[in-house]
Nucleic acid binder design. Structure first.
Length: 821
RNA sequence: GCCGACGUGGUGGAAUUGGUAGACACGCCAGACUUAGGAUCUGGUGCCUCACGGCGUCCGGGUUCGAGUCCCGGCGUUGGCACCA
């Protein structure tokens, strides 16, 4: 029961009971208990009407506990969800824990605690912190990705992709720290060095599992246009997918295979003075002449010890001549074939034509190795005969081709088309679209993740674990740390590792890699409604009713990886007939970042604010409201230690006003008008995530409410309690009860505003003279220009600026009058 | 290098999308009630000026009766991509 405050009688209130002090700790504990006891936040998913799926990004349960940034993110989503509920929707607001992954594992290693022991502890702490924050979470559908009841279906998902031909294995480079003797994730490589010991990271080739994300590049890109997502996020995805239009051009090489290059500048082909391959290019061995063999071998050896990252950091151009020559298909001239590490095997064809005149990298390469530079594009003011001192990158459509045979004189865009068409006719080019998006490597040579459900058999090859044998339980291994073999620690657990082949029964070996943490989170939103089902990954009927997610709110740091992988998985499941939609999140909004006193919060700076302490001191409702008051939700805000007092004062006043309110009088007309304006503002601001201005509007209303000496009426505060409820849910529930209601304020609907009340009889119009505001006049709402002008001249302060007959008068009805003299 | 966002009082931030710049809040100043105030309440608070008034939204131009808002050119901060051909 709540703290025993008797509701006021609805009629006669001769003596005001003394207002109890607002004690957030007591109020919040009471209501959190009641919500849990009464299942207030657990809607009936199978028959709730008008379903609204409000999703927030489930946290990784770190050892440090809930961060204020998490709280900011969740509160913003929660307010949106609570508002939708008060609008009459059935709102499902689930939560879970992204508890698998390298972060957890590394933390466990650091602390010397097993992740299986650490994770439940961290989850418990998070759960209690989330509860204290007053979020409208449906705990009955909680999901924990490291629990076998969840990762069983992550493994099932892998098998579906495998069946659809979307999962395959190939040799790929991993980051290898020679000092720590361990595989590193890309995030652990800082400027080419190990984040822990700073050793230069190398690359090692390992057989790894991939998903064919690249096959979905075009769809992933094209669908973006129709998504109701924050523009920053959509832009980040477009950049990441990285579409570029160009052509494959084939260069002949005597006594060897042709070499295909990808270029976005086929118009510059007459300036291609060499050809260059990535060190890993399959034709390298074939092309190298005997005389160059040792030089090439030495170069390849050197690049091999560099990982992908450090290769990108080292901008100094290096390379080696193969001894071979290719024929430029445009000029028919022989050009040398080189090898360099600035050409990447994983993009395009792994080979590039060197056009030093019009590409900065190629120009540097030409300088270093004294290769010829030919200008083939010139601006209007350029003399084509002047030697280039730097690469000339075409800037405008006024740039024309030069030194390019029959194409000279064409503009760059014209030439792009014409050159490709010409070469295509001669069988040495074709237009192609290239995407930057690579296939998704999901293999991790680590322990704390879901084992990939594959068994290797000497006779049958890789065999998927039958679905009825899932989950492949992650065995408990005391020493779970990665070792210097580059193979997952799971390989050391012989009992687990050796297993009969499901097809032929011979002894086989399990796949020892676990899957990427991002796979866990790429489908959790599908699991939530069916979280308590152990017979399916997601129930068909529930999924049809609740998905796709209505609104997803989260941080833009996940703009590419998490959100893109989720889209990919959803598309694959759609194509496999498991889902009838192909985009998982109808609406996505990226919130901003919280900084503190102008600086980013970080452990190393020691300026991290602790949500627990703040809730102890001010209450969760004050903290929630303050976080939302800091600025535009989508832009984040600057946490100032002193600022929360203002919000707390506001809530104190709401509390007092409600407790002091009576029913013995009429609603004040001024108050009523302000109230309806406030309802309008808050109703419009919340769905647009304009939380800061919604709060400001409510503050204004409370200021008006308390400005006069009169007693506040019930009808003046009841709608305010509803408006404030999404922000300060505990306080609102308590106040709602004080006002005599027995059901939750979240089932009380949302107050409507009467637009006719917003119209006033008189309005204030600004009067400008020559564009400078000189005063205001109060006139009738529908006053004509002449009336306003006459009224303006009656004001001495205005009239003194109007000394001559006005040249012109601009009148904006209801806003201003500008007298031009 | 490519793509995007932003720049407003001492501070966080508002501004109906071209129409009274600075809402709301912090802080500060003054007052009231107090033994007391890191409580509560009231008033004030962009800058210069005794005032009239002038000046003010990063800087410089422009469009307009009117620009924080639109256009051109800078400067600065910040996000995404990046030896991607």
């Amino acid at each position: 029961m709540p703290s025993g405050i008797p509701p006021l009688p609805m009629s006669e209130t001769p003596v005001l009971p003394e207002t109890p002090a607002y004690d957030p700790a007591a109020v919040e504990a009471t209501w959190q208990q009641r919500w849990a006891d009464q299942g207030t936040n657990s809607p009936a998913l199978s028959d709730g009407r008008d379903p609204y799926y409000q999703l927030m990004m489930f946290p990784y349960p770190s050892g440090e506990g809930l961060h204020i940034g998490n709280l900011f993110a969740f509160t913003g989503a929660d307010i949106h969800g609570r508002f939708q509920r008060m609008q009459g929707r059935t709102v499902f607001e689930p939560i879970g824990f992204d508890s698998f992954g390298i972060q957890t594992e590394n933390y466990a290693i650091k602390r010397g605690v097993h992740p299986a022991e650490l994770t439940p502890r961290n989850v418990d702490r998070f759960r209690s912190q989330l509860t204290r924050a007053g979020l409208m979470l449906d705990w009955q559908k909680e999901v924990i990705t490291s629990d076998p009841s969840y990762y069983r279906w992550t493994q099932w998902l892998f098998l579906q992709l495998y069946k659809q031909g979307m999962a395959y294995k190939k040799a790929a480079a991993v980051n290898w720290c020679p000092n720590d003797k361990t595989v590193l994730a890309n995030e652990q490589v800082i400027d080419g060095h190990c984040e822990r010991c700073d050793a230069l990271v190398e690359q090692r080739l390992l057989e790894q599992w991939f998903f064919r994300t690249s096959q979905y590049s075009e769809r992933l890109l094209n669908n973006i246009a129709a998504l109701d997502w924050s523009e920053v996020t959509r832009q980040a995805q477009r950049n990441w997918i990285g579409r570029s239009e160009g052509a494959h051009v084939t260069f002949r090489v005597a006594n060897a295979h042709d070499v295909a290059v990808f270029t976005t500048r086929p118009d510059t082909i007459f300036g291609a003075t060499w050809l260059v391959l990535a060190p890993e290019h399959p034709l390298v061995a074939e092309l190298v002449t005997p005389g160059q063999r040792s030089a090439v071998d030495a170069y390849l050896e050197r690049t091999k010890t560099q990982d992908v990252v450090s290769r990108k950091v080292n901008k100094e151009k290096t390379g080696v001549f193969t001894g071979a020559e290719a024929i430029n298909p445009a000029t028919g001239q022989p050009i040398p074939v080189w090898i360099t590490d600035y050409v990447l095997m994983e993009y395009g064809t792994g080979a590039v034509m060197g056009v030093p005149g019009h590409d900065e990298r190629d120009f540097e390469f030409a300088q270093k190795f004294a290769l010829p530079v030919i200008r083939v594009v010139a601006g209007a003011d350029d003399d084509p005969a002047t030697p280039l001192t730097e690469a000339y990158v075409a800037k405008s459509d006024a740039d024309l081709l030069v030194n390019s045979a029959q194409f000279s004189g064409l503009t760059v865009p014209q030439a792009k088309k014409a050159v490709v068409a010409w070469l295509e006719g001669r069988g040495s080019a074709q237009p192609v679209v290239n995407y930057r998006l690579n296939d998704w490597c999901i293999s991790r040579q680590r322990y704390w993740g879901p084992p990939i459900p594959i068994i290797y058999c000497d006779s049958c090859g890789p065999v998927p674990v039958p679905e009825d044998q899932l989950p492949v339980v992650l065995p408990h291994i005391e020493d779970f740390r990665p070792d210097d073999s580059g193979i997952s620690p799971l390989a050391r657990h012989d009992e687990w590792y050796r297993v009969a082949c499901p097809q032929c029964g011979q002894m086989g070996r399990r796949e020892t890699d676990v899957s990427d943490n991002f796979l866990d989170s790429a489908w959790y939103f599908l699991r939530y409604p069916s979280a308590d089902r152990d017979d399916v990954a997601f129930d068909a009927a529930l999924t049809r009713k609740w998905l796709p997610v209505t609104t997803y709110i989260g941080g833009n740091e996940h703009a590419v990886l998490h959100l893109l992988y989720s889209r990919f998985i959803t598309m694959v499941l759609h194509d496999g007939g498991f889902l009838d939609f192909e985009e998982p999140f109808t609406r996505f909004r990226a919130h901003g970042m919280i900084i503190r006193e102008g600086a980013k919060m970080s452990k190393s700076k020691g300026n991290v604010v602790n949500p627990d302490e703040l809730i102890d001191r001010w209450g969760a409702d004050s903290l929630r409201t303050y976080l939302m008051f800091l600025g535009k939700y989508e832009e984040g805000g600057d946490y100032r230690d002193s600022g929360i007092t203002g919000v707390r004062r506001f809530l104190d006043r709401v509390w007092s006003s409600v407790h002091e309110s009576v029913t013995d009088g009429a609603v004040d007309p001024t108050v009523r008008r302000k109230l309806h304006a406030t309802i309008k503002k808050v109703t419009e601001d919340i769905p647009a995530l304009g939380y800061n201005t919604a709060i400001a509007a409510m503050m204004e209303y409370v200021n008006v409410l308390r400005a006069s000496e009169r007693t506040v009426q019930h009808d003046e505060v009841a709608p305010l309690v509803q408006l404030v409820a999404p922000f300060a849910p505990h306080l609102a529930e308590q106040c709602w009860e004080v006002l005599g209601h027995t059901r939750s304020v979240f089932d009380a609907g949302w107050p409507a505003f009467d637009p006719t009340l917003l119209i006033t009889d008189t309005i204030t119009i600004a009067v400008q003279v020559n564009g400078k505001t000189r005063g205001t006049v109060v006139v009738a709402r529908d006053a004509a220009q002449s009336d306003v002008y006459a009224a303006a001249l009656l004001d001495a302060n205005i009239a003194k600026f109007v000394t001559v007959e006005p040249k012109k008068i601009i009148f904006v009805a209801g806003r201003l009058l500008n007298i031009v003299v």
